[in-house]
Structures are given as C-alpha cells and as structure tokens.
C-alpha cells in the first residue's frame, strides 16, 4: 500500500486522538517512575481484536513520531500475520518508516520475544502483553492481587515455583517466568520464553509493556535490576539447545522447532528471523541450509 498524505488526513496522526495519547503518555511516565508496577489506563477499542496486540499498538501509537523507524516482530519473526498487519497499520496511519533490521529500528513492537541482537540506548521495546498480572492464575481477584503488590506479599509465587520443583524436580515454568524488579515488584515479562529474561536485566533500551484487554501499562527503564525468581538450590536457568540453528549455525540463540514431514523429520531454526538472515548474509551456514544466498536469489 502506498501511503500518501491525502490518505492520512482521514485519521489523526498514529490513529489515536490527542486526548487518548495524553492519557497514555501520562500513564507511561508513571510506569517509568514505578518500575514493574502495572498502571491502569483507559484502554481504547482499536481496529483489531483483543489478543492482537491492542495494548502494544496503543503504546506505540502514543510514543511514535515521524522520525521513528518501526520494527514489529511476532515470536521473533518479522513476516508473520500479526507483525505484518501491525506494521501495515502504522504505515497507513502514521506514514512511518519501517524496517526488519533490529539495529535500524528506534521502536520495536514485539509479541513474545526480545531480539537476539543487543538493544541500544536510542531504542524502545514495546511488548504486547495478554495477562499483565503475574499472580492472576494464583489469585483471580484483582482486589487481592493489588493488595499483595501493595504489601509486597509474594509468598504465593514462591510456593508455586516450589510446587513445580516438588512435582517435576525442577522449575517447570518455561515462559512468562516471573521476575522481580529493583527488589520490589514481581512482574510478568509477558509470555516471552524464559530464555529472554536475562536480556531484560540492565538493558540499555527502555522497555514498555501494554496490555489492551486488561488495561494496564508497565515499564522497565534502562539499567534496571530485573531478577528471575528462583531458589538457592534451584537457581534460574535458561533453555539450552542441543544443536545450533539449522540455517545459520547460531548457538546460544532461541530456536523454533519446525516439523518437516509426517515421519518425524524436523529442524530447529532461529526464532529471530532478522538475526538468522543477517548471519546468513555474512556467510554463516547451518547444516540444513540447502542453497547459498546467491542460489536462493
């Protein structure tokens, strides 16, 4: 779609009206001032259903300017439905420049991954969050969870992790693994794999979390202490993969399993598509990369 200024005129810049943006902007400032605390906000109806990232979209719309370069990822990939449609949305309503390259982006909206490449000071990572309350599945009442956060009463979460160990011999939570922020608030990192938790700690980039249906925004300023909950005898560990990415040969990255046929054939590839492509462009080659870059073109 060719976004020309005449098409833009039917919307306010970045879709939201100015009063909504001001409300979200005030919320973001308070969220930054209280790291890890979920600030309620008056989430709006967006032209996409809940569950498609309406919280992240509202946060992005409130911070986005004409000078920004936007990247949108869905489970690490730039080319899946959610990422493509949100990118197209902002091209249409804000005429903003977009990219798939992590290092070129100023704002990265993400669904459930943190890019493999280290984020830098000029960048803002916006998470789409389905359930912002880490205690919600342990205590369904908002009045109670709010009190638990107020009193810093997080024993229930440790009991849950302990029960994991009692049943499975290890902490079985692999995604949405709870973290403690600056020694105060227990926070859900959104359903990112726990592999990404260490990247939140002392990140150089500002991290903003938007939950549209649940009407909450929270934030991690840069250089904020983010600790994954654990026990002395069962320390926090990230997933390890037995083999490198089948396409680019990368190790110590998060891999997706791709089923190839109905006879048990499978491959493991980088979930971060930009990282994988970039490595292949630089000549890295995995065991199942069938063609060289030249042949593919």
């Amino acid at each position: 779609m060719n976004a020309v200024p005449s098409e833009l005129a039917t919307y306010n810049f970045a879709y939201l009206d100015e009063q909504t943006k001001r409300m979200i902007r005030r919320t973001i400032l308070k969220a930054i001032a209280i790291p890890g605390y979920q600030v309620p906000f008056a989430s709006r109806e967006m032209p996409m259903p809940y569950g498609w990232g309406t919280g992240g979209v509202q946060v992005t719309a409130a911070i986005l300017g004409p000078e920004d370069v936007l990247k949108v990822i869905d489970q690490g990939a730039d080319d899946t439905t959610n990422a493509v449609s949100i990118r197209a949305f902002f091209q249409k309503v804000a005429n903003v420049a977009v990219t798939t390259k992590t290092r070129e982006a100023t704002i990265i909206q993400t669904r459930h991954r943190i890019p493999e490449e280290k984020l830098t000071a000029g960048q803002t990572l916006v998470y789409q969050v389905p359930i912002p309350e880490p205690l919600r599945f342990l205590e369904p009442r908002e009045t109670e969870t709010r009190k638990m956060h107020a009193l810093e009463e997080y024993g229930l979460m440790h009991v849950k992790l302990y029960e994991d160990i009692a049943r499975n011999g290890h902490i079985a939570t692999t995604y949405s693994y709870p973290v403690k922020v600056e020694g105060r608030y227990v926070m859900s990192p959104s359903p990112t794999p726990k592999f990404d938790n260490p990247k939140m700690h002392m990140s150089e980039a500002l991290q903003l979390f938007g939950a549209g249906r649940e009407k909450r925004i929270y934030a991690l300023p840069p250089f904020t202490d983010v600790v994954s909950l654990d026990f002395e005898d069962h320390p926090f560990e990230v997933q390890k993969f037995e083999r490198p990415c089948a396409l680019c040969g990368a190790e110590n990255v998060y891999l997706d399993e791709v089923v190839l046929d109905d006879r048990g054939g499978r491959m493991f590839v980088c979930s971060d598509t930009d990282h994988c492509e970039d490595r292949r462009d630089h000549g890295h080659c995995g065991t199942m990369l069938a063609y060289g870059k030249a042949a593919a073109e």
Binding site: E18, K21, L29, I63, L206, A219, P221
Partner: peptide, 19 residues
C-alpha cells in the same frame, strides 16, 4: 503544530524520565 509538537515534547520527557 499541536500533534507533532506534543509527540516530540513527550518523547523528550519520556527519555529523560527513563534516564
């Protein structure tokens, strides 16, 4: 330019609040 000016002022304040 109310829309773009508010955005640019907010981004400056947001970056300063975060750092």
């Amino acid at each position: 330019e109310p829309v773009l000016a508010a955005q640019s002022v907010f981004r400056t304040v947001m970056d300063c609040m975060a750092r």
